[in-house]
Design a protein around this nucleic acid. Sequence first.
DNA 1: GAATACATGTAAAATGTTACATGATTTT
DNA 2: AAAATCATGTAACATTTTACATGTATTC
Lengths: 183, 183
Amino acid sequence: MLKYALLGFLNYLDATGYDLKQLLDVSTANFWHAEQSQIYATLKKLENENLISSKIVPQENRPDRRVYSITEKGKQDLINWLNEPIGELEERKETLLLKLFFSAGSEIETLLTELHLQKSLHEKQLELYQTSSREIIAQFRNSTGLEEDARHWELTRRFGEMFEEMYIAWLEEAIQTMEGKSG
Amino acid sequence: MLKYALLGFLNYLDATGYDLKQLLDVSTANFWHAEQSQIYATLKKLENENLISSKIVPQENRPDRRVYSITEKGKQDLINWLNEPIGELEERKETLLLKLFFSAGSEIETLLTELHLQKSLHEKQLELYQTSSREIIAQFRNSTGLEEDARHWELTRRFGEMFEEMYIAWLEEAIQTMEGKSG
DNA sequence: GAATACATGTAAAATGTTACATGATTTT
DNA sequence: AAAATCATGTAACATTTTACATGTATTC
């Protein structure tokens, strides 16, 4: 699926593996992320399948850049994927819930510390969505005029915001439940 | 991390790989799932590390059962993991958001169909959390008297419920946004 | 008669993570 | 003087998924 994240970006502009890592980190990281090495490996694979092509751009005092472009075949593959419905729920993994599920015999204080720590992390993340993510998208909309793209990005930002609000509310409930059992 | 799901269950009772798959499917699947083959492979690895041990229990007309038990070393490993804080946010992947992010150029009708389909799937999942999951936990609490365990399981169920409510609310927002652009 | 439940696994492929290697330039 | 940025990648490892293989008993 990283495949489609890369094709998606290359459908906007030509880029190197390094560029693509930066792009992922500042935009899709909250719902799709990847290590630099995985990006390089996947690009190589996509080029073998002729979904993208590359050109070496020499540089002075820096390693040459390998700049990728999407091919017609790549564009078609991307469009096909975008149009085919998902049809099922995403399977997800949540380490905190796994720990909570099995920690009936643990110290309540230890668990409460963990829940408070998680709460502060989620509050920080929520603030990011509400300030910098918001501004980056608004600025992109104003400077490029790409209304539609900005609208879609804004919806993914809004998901993040709502997810964090929900997570914090749940943590507060969990803390309350556990506090009722420790005093 | 599947490791700890398996150790967690084996800390309650002895079980085969087959049993463990059933247990995962009816309890942790919404925040931790695994294929049958991965469970068998992981059990083998855990036995090599002496975190669990196994005995063959012969059967008639059925394949022999390989029943696993947790060892003292395994119990310690589980307890250590439960007590060490996570300290960071979980990274997650959400295919629907990835598609949405890149679908500014797609047909709005196609996207709306997808959003409506997702909404019905999440509504079904929400109902499951509110009815059968709820009852299973209540029944377990009543029949075993394991109050604490039931309390923890209930918190993980509640997370599922809140997550689905949030997801549905977001889908409704997204549908509204997109409908404003299609009519 | 077909599907599901019981019960084990192997093998191959795909996916993802971590560590290593190189080396100049710029910022702290 | 150390760390971060730019830019490439390889290699080893760990995790997860998909497909295959076997065979009885029970339920629909």
